[in-house]
């Protein structure tokens, strides 16, 4: 028998906490939720096997359709808008020299230090249809603002607006990438007579493409799992929940309701697994597409 080196044994001692965590809190629950997704389980009785019943039910559940629609709508608006605005902020920061840059960076990041529940609460006030600051601001220009928090057609745009207050992390990631663009490149292009837009388009953007691509992925994944802010604003309270119909029903919020309000643990597990697969597929697609679009410095050196 091959002897295990003491060093190897020690290595596993150090990995032990993570291995236990992996089994008990990651792999175990992952498999368990897959198994539960084939059952009816209300926490009181034993799980009852229903085959693909939960998945069939999902396909016919109008609320799932609504939640998916809302979540996709939000993601499709939030991701491009948040990245475009964060890129604009990062480019601004990149033009500033000295202490001012640090001050502005702090201010841009500050909203990200506001707990999501407080963000949701704050925007309930700011977006208030009758008297909120947003509509009073629009009123200065003679625009009559919509009922952001009660009109089903305007709830999602309001949530997107709220999400754009929180650009801190995206801005910092893109700013760090901009800082790493070699100055010689832009200077050389300038000498060659390239204009501002041309330099941005053919030098800056390719040089930061891997960072842009990275924030596209993480912002998409987190947008699909939107929960805290909408739950704080529109759920948990019967009055609030009924007044807006399902206009603010996000996928994870519905999953949470099914699991912990109605105790449909099996159904919630099926919802969770579909979300997991969707996120997996999106990540794989983005990585594949990214490999074609992103400029990696290493390739240049290798070639």
């Amino acid at each position: 028998m091959r002897r295990i080196r003491p060093e190897t044994r020690w290595a596993y001692v150090f990995l032990l906490p993570w291995l236990i965590g992996l089994l008990v809190f990651q792999l175990g629950p992952m498999v368990a939720s897959l198994v539960l997704s084939f059952t009816d389980f209300d926490l009181i009785g034993d799980p009852e096997f229903v085959g693909l019943g939960n998945y069939a039910r999902m396909a016919q559940d109008p609320k799932v359709l609504r939640a998916v629609g809302n979540t996709v709508y939000y993601t499709a608006l939030h991701v491009p808008l948040s990245i475009a605005l964060a890129l604009a902020l990062a480019l601004m920061l990149n033009r500033i020299t000295g202490r001012a840059a640090g001050v502005f960076r702090t201010i841009f990041y500050l909203p990200s230090m506001t707990p999501y529940v407080a963000v949701g609460v704050l925007f309930l006030f700011l977006l208030n249809g009758q008297a909120g600051m947003v509509n009073q601001f629009l009123g200065l220009f003679g625009i009559e603002g919509p009922q952001w928090t009660t009109d089903p057609d305007w709830i999602l745009p309001g949530i997107v607006l709220m999400s754009l207050w929180n650009l801190g992390s995206t801005t910092i990631i893109l700013f760090a990438a901009l800082r790493n663009v070699p100055r010689e490149l832009t200077e050389a292009a300038m000498i060659d007579g390239a204009g501002r837009w041309q330099r941005f388009r053919s030098i800056t953007l390719p040089m930061i493409s891997s960072a842009v691509f990275f924030v596209v992925i993480i912002n998409t994944i987190s947008a699909l799992q939107m929960f805290d802010q909408v739950y704080a604003m529109f759920f948990g309270n019967q009055v609030a929940q009924q007044s807006h119909g399902d206009a603010a029903l996000f996928y994870v919020a519905y999953l949470f309701q099914q699991a912990f309000q109605f105790l449909h643990m099996g159904y919630a597990s099926a919802l969770a697994w579909v979300l997991f697969l969707v996120i997996l597929v999106i990540t794989l697609i983005q990585v594949k597409v990214g490999n074609r679009l992103v400029y990696y410095e290493a390739e240049e050196h290798a070639g």
Binding site: M30, A32, A259, A272, L275
Partner: peptide, 16 residues
């Protein structure tokens, strides 16, 4: 494991 959404482990973790 960074890719695993929290929602997947939500119910079993509660059961634990």
């Amino acid at each position: 494991t960074m890719m695993l959404p929290a929602a997947v482990t939500l119910v079993p973790t509660y059961l634990i």
